[in-house]
Design a protein around this nucleic acid. Sequence first.
DNA 1: CGTATGACGAGCC
DNA 2: AGGCTCGCCATAC
Length: 111
Amino acid sequence: MASGFFQQVWRLVGQIPKGRVASYGQIAALLGNPRAARTVGWAMHSCPAELDLPWHRVINSKGKISLDADYAGGDLQQQLLEAEGVQIGYNGVIDMQKYGWQPLPDKVVLP
DNA sequence: CGTATGACGAGCC
DNA sequence: AGGCTCGCCATAC
């Protein structure tokens, strides 16, 4: 069952379309806990490879990769994103306004 | 059950 | 502007 918060995070992350990115805080907010960004990050840390999650599409609110670029999978994450068409600035910043993922962008007006 | 952790976020110095 | 600290919340042990 998807009772665990991690499970919900994984499911949501799995719905991020290719070429798009989302922030930890955004994921948390979509799950109803805008303050649980850290927990989302931890969920990513625990993401089972068998789920084949697009974990690389999750970045921090600054539009940057949280992992150390030259240490952990940060380098890999950047390569994966660029391979999907996500352009990364020289400073390592991604344009959230352009690549930011918005689930159901049409439901804005509905109550 | 209480303490510690963590791929964050926003504020403060 | 850049860097550091505190706060938040859900798991792990």
